[in-house]
């Protein structure tokens, strides 16, 4: 396991939608989504790159990562 991938049970500090968030490693986008349970439909970005649904399980979240979870709102 690389330095940046958290060992099992370790706490990972990240930001989600600009706010600090902690979760227990090892973490993936799928496990973060399970914790946050955003209301569908939503889209996820990890460090400014879109993560598509089929990649949620395989995309590891590391210490210091920035995640955005977005949805559609009213706009012009």
């Amino acid at each position: 396991m690389s330095d940046s991938t958290a060992a099992a049970g370790a706490t990972i500090s990240i930001t989600v939608n600009g706010e600090s968030f902690s979760l227990t490693g090892p973490a993936t986008v799928a496990s973060l989504i399970a914790l946050r349970s955003p209301r569908p439909p939503f889209a996820v970005e990890l460090n400014k790159t879109l993560v598509r649904r089929p990649q949620y399980d395989a995309t590891t979240i590391r210490e210091g990562d920035a995640v955005e979870i977005v949805t559609l709102v009213g706009g012009g």
Partner: peptide, 19 residues
């Protein structure tokens, strides 16, 4: 209709979403 993309949890007072 046009929509915007924003961080989740922007619901109205009754916790309803645009869609």
């Amino acid at each position: 209709v046009t929509v915007a993309v924003r961080r989740e949890r922007l619901f109205d007072a009754q916790n309803r979403s645009l869609l």
